[in-house]
Design a binder for these strands. Structure first.
Length: 575
RNA sequence: CGGGACGUAGCGCAGCUUGGUAGCGCGCAGCGUUCGGGACGCUGAGGUCGUGGGUUCAAGUCCCACCGUCCCGACCA
């Protein structure tokens, strides 16, 4: 492609408020343009990258036996009602009506559609199956942000495994795990797989693929010693046991104006240090109030609360709701003697005595609280958010906490969808059994953005050869110089004939502009052709990563470039 | 949804406090000089000042409402 005929609108100015570097670089380099919040046009350069990523995904999915489908994005409400997710998905599901006022949804995922197709399976002999597609998803995100990292319309590779039994799903799950590592590594990413929560998908086991990045929105907890790794939504840590001594009698004491853990601790340091207090939170889970108890210096991880209770929706109670329930305002709440709402307590409180908590009367607290004696705990569970430096629950070494981008997620779903849609097969004994499903997703544009997040420098993007929009850019320093242009076109034709994707920068621009643009858009190799080199019979070859330059005799250029590109094209070698 | 900010030429912004002929840089078009690291000169095109209402002799500027976008907190690939 000649640059003068291509649509590559690079920019010097980018929106100043753009947070993620990938967003800034993809906009500046002419890969994407925003149409609306969370809605992006992908320009020719961007499409080329997207197609490369999709191609890698396709190869790896086919390698594990996947068969490609293409399902509608527009779904009748019917199927979402069948699975129960019409109500469950809430505002995240885009809904619309047709001219007959019939409800429809824009697909945010395709368990329903695939499950309905799976009703055409009748025998266990037809299993296992791996079905996938690369298709547009719609999600009405409450807050789209960070360019391509969080949008409302995006391309997802979603796949689904169909199995007759548990060993089957385990195998499908493991094959996906391996395929995902292969896919992300070939894209130049360095993913790690972490334990995660299944959220609204339902199902038993779920693993996320994370790429370390400050632009990420997930917190990941890892142990450098034993390899434990999990999303904070699920991560566990050990708690140093606390010796509370003999215990004490329950006693009310006045605490005028003391409304926070910190204030109470400062006013009564001897009895009410934060780790001796009980933090009482009131949550509304699917409309029902519950009391959540944590140690004063711990934070609640909401997802854990939802996972342990199976709640679909969780929100902190409003002050009015709290007053109606407990008769006091936040700051003086406690669970002592409370009847009615379920009390869910974090395990870090198990067996603790001589604690301090609110008395459900403004400006009063209890001391000497004994969890076993004074509070009727309905459920004990891991609820607290893990902080950096806390001991690993496996080996006791300090945990690390860092931010990551979730580029993929794999779930074991079980039979939720197959049962809802009647997707059953007969087993060896002729008995009808629901198909066991797994579902697996990769955000294609998000993966693209993650590549940019983890591979760029001051000059711009550094695409790995495997996903680069072009493999080589020929920068013609003086396109108006006859012999120079002749050599450039010759190289362009030879490289193209060798199957290499070449962009010929034949623009009548100053060299500096062309160098800067080639670096911004991140083409892995630059061949600089100018009168000086042409006269001497040498061509300058620049590797984008590290900006390493070398002089290559004109006659060797094609061979050299070809060897470099071809060895890295699959993405299995570092580029 | 809660909190904060912004909306003026394709892009990045000033102008608003104190109402009075809409500006700057980049980019774009033409001509010329330049040309191995973001050149320069001359000429020129390009704007419903987010939308609607209000105040005023007069609104980009003041007031109200709405819409949109971004950032910070609860969801997901």
């Amino acid at each position: 492609m000649r640059w003068t005929q291509a649509f590559i609108p690079t920019l010097r100015d980018a929106p100043a408020d753009a947070e993620a570097i990938s967003h800034k670089l993809l906009v500046r380099g002419g890969f994407i343009r925003q149409l609306a919040a969370g809605s992006y046009s992908i320009l020719p350069l961007g499409v080329r990258v997207r197609n490369k990523v999709a191609g890698i995904i396709r190869e790896e999915m086919n390698r594990i036996g996947g068969q490609e489908f293409l399902l509608p994005a527009l779904h009748p409400a019917e199927i979402w009602k069948t699975s129960g997710r019409w109500d469950l998905m809430g505002d995240n599901l885009f809904r619309l009506q047709d001219r007959k006022q019939v409800d429809h949804a824009l697909g945010m995922t395709h368990e329903e559609v695939f499950a309905s197709i799976a009703t055409e399976l009748f025998s266990y002999r037809e299993l296992p199956q791996i079905w996938y597609q690369i298709q547009t998803k719609f999600r009405d995100e409450p807050r789209p942000k960070s360019g391509l990292l969080r949008v409302r319309e995006f391309t997802m590779k979603d796949s689904y495994t169909l199995d007759i039994d548990l060993p089957g799903i385990d195998s499908g799950f493991d094959r996906h795990r391996a395929a995902y590592f292969a896919i992300f590594r070939r894209c130049g990413l360095d993913p790690i797989d972490v334990e995660a929560s299944s959220g609204a998908m339902g199902g038993s086991e779920s693993v996320e693929f994370m790429v370390r990045s400050e632009a990420g929105e997930d917190w990941i907890v890892t142990c450098g010693n034993c390899g434990y790794r999990a999303n904070v939504e699920r991560a566990a840590s050990a708690v140093e046991p606390v010796d509370d001594g003999a215990g004490a009698d329950l006693e009310r004491f006045p605490t005028p104006g003391l409304r926070t853990i910190k204030a109470l601790a400062e006013a009564h340091p001897e009895v009410a240090s934060p780790d001796r207090q009980i933090k009482t939170l009131v949550y509304i889970l699917d409309g029902e109030p519950v009391l959540v108890l944590l140690r004063g210096d711990h934070e609640l991880q909401e997802q854990k609360l939802m996972d342990v209770t199976g709640a679909i929706e969780a929100r902190p109670a409003q002050p009015e709701e709290i007053r109606e329930l407990l008769g006091a305002d936040p700051g003086s709440l406690g669970a002592v003697g409370v009847r009615g709402p379920t009390v869910i307590a974090d395990r870090a409180l198990e067996g603790r005595k001589k604690l301090v908590t609110g008395a459900n009367e403004d400006d009063w607290h209890y001391s000497g609280v004994d969890l076993g004696r004074d509070i009727e705990v309905g459920v004990w569970a891991e609820l607290r958010a893990v902080g950096a430096g806390e001991p690993c629950s496996v080996c006791g070494r300090p945990l690390e906490r860092w931010k990551g981008i979730e580029v993929g997620h794999i779930f074991k779903l079980g039979t939720k969808y197959s049962e809802a849609f009647g997707a059953t097969v007969q087993d060896e004994s002729g008995e009808s059994r629901p198909i066991i499903m797994g579902s697996y997703g990769i955000g294609v544009e998000r993966a693209m953005a993650a590549v940019v997040e983890s591979s760029h420098d001051e000059g711009g993007i550094i695409w790995p050869v495997s996903v680069a929009p072009y493999e080589v850019v020929i920068t013609v320093v003086r396109p108006d110089d006859g012999p120079t242009m002749e050599v450039a076109i010759g190289l362009y034709q030879e490289l193209t004939a060798a199957g290499i994707e070449v962009l010929l920068d034949d623009r009548d621009e100053r060299p500096g502009v062309k160098f800067a643009d080639s670096e911004l858009i991140g083409i892995p190799y630059r061949v600089t052709v100018g009168p000086r080199g042409v006269a001497e019979g040498v061509i300058e070859l620049t590797t984008r990563r590290g900006m390493v330059k070398s002089e290559v005799p004109l006659g060797d250029l094609v061979g050299t470039v070809r060897a470099a590109v071809e060895s890295r094209r699959l993405g299995t070698e570092p580029s």
